[in-house]
Amino acid sequence: MKPPPRDDANQVIPHDHPDINNEHEVIRRISSEQVVEKKGKNVISSIAYKASTGKNGGMSVDLKQLIEIDGVDPKIWVTTPRWIGSVIFKVSDLREMNFMVGYDPILAPNPNEYHGEVWGDFKKSNQKKLKSLAIWFVPINNVDLV
């Protein structure tokens, strides 16, 4: 995978990476801290489908095909060392919503060479759409997607 573009502070600049194909998928980890009770059901809070609030912040994901190329099981990768739930998105669906899907390897403190970001407008209508497109990858017990 070609290295991502970086700014003067060495932070990855939001970009749509040419080596991430539309047929690829991205995994979004979901912590049980972001589960809320809604109309008698446990569901994922909308805040899980938002960008991080920092500079150049996007929505963190793992790039599934990149994990598989290295012969690693994505389900083990996203649940190790910390067990955590996750959902999966098709890159084509994200791009149809005008999101950019980029590569942003994390070096420290929790290295993740398969880390990517989704950048774009996380307005409420897009959060709702993301919620409707999400499919469980590693389900959390007793939690519904919507």
């Binding site: 801290e33 809320v36 109309k39 809070s45 609030t53 920092g54």
Partner: peptide, 17 residues
């Protein structure tokens, strides 16, 4: 209900019928 964001932020939520 209060849920954390990833950058030190948080969200306060109410959900009724």
């Amino acid at each position: 209900q209060i849920v954390p964001g990833t950058g030190g932020d948080l969200q306060i939520e109410w959900h009724t019928d």
